[in-house]
């Protein structure tokens, strides 16, 4: 494993820690899109179907379990926890996320590395992850007061994507036959979705003003 990949995984993990900190300690999910969180839970469930079939490494298994457990517990907190769910900004979280699922599934049936159940589900998870951030970005645009933890959460998620691209570039040159068009194209699309957010996030940090996205 190269440094970019490890750094990517760590920022991904950090984003989850930041979000859990907000939900668990502050008991607030204000500014967080439940739709995005539901999509992530579905992404991990579809992608990690091989969890108990294919052993890659202890690191890999533990990380998969962490992402599965954290994504489902975040959804649980936002839906069921009696204090947290009251802070959920339901009125502004209106993205029709169900309409993302079917096209991603259709695309996975058409474009996959191999036409088997697990490979189709893997491709589906890659496509869905690429667009899963959209409800969150829309909600951020509608949120007047984006708190620091929410901004940091999205920033770390975006950083994870950038680092994964660097990891692929590194692997392409160091590992023979490492060609994965599906994850590369989807990953680049996913990262581009963050470009706008990154711009405003860095500007707010540089000018030391509160983060606000133009509507």
């Amino acid at each position: 494993m190269n440094a970019f990949r490890l750094a990517g995984d760590m920022t991904h993990l950090l984003s989850v820690v930041v979000l859990l900190l907000k939900i668990h300690t502050i008991k607030s999910c204000a500014g967080i899109s439940l739709k995005t969180q539901e999509l992530y839970a579905l992404v991990f469930a579809a992608r990690y179907l091989d969890l108990f079939i294919h052993f890659i490494s202890l690191y890999n298994t533990v990380m998969k379990l962490v992402f599965l457990a954290s994504s489902f517990s975040i959804v649980w907190y936002m839906r069921r926890h009696k204090i947290v769910r009251r802070t959920y900004d339901k009125d502004h979280d209106t993205f029709r996320h169900h309409f993302l699922v079917l096209p991603c599934l259709a695309l996975a049936l058409l474009i996959n590395e191999r036409f088997t159940f697990r490979e189709v589900m893997w491709a589906f998870s890659i496509y869905l992850e690429a667009v899963a951030i959209l409800p969150q970005l829309v909600l951020l645009q509608r949120t007047r007061n984006i708190d620091n933890l929410t901004g940091q959460y999205v920033f770390f998620l975006g950083a994870y994507r950038v680092l994964y691209i660097l990891n692929w570039i590194y692997r392409y040159f160091t590992e023979p036959h490492f060609v994965h068009w599906i994850s590369w194209v989807a990953g680049i699309v996913q990262t581009l979705l963050y470009a706008d957010f990154f711009y405003y996030y860095i500007m707010s940090w540089k000018n030391n003003v509160k983060l606000e996205l133009p509507a």
Partner: peptide
Amino acid sequence: MDSSLGHDEL
């Protein structure tokens, strides 16, 4: 190449 080898990423 076994494509499962490619799925070593999270």
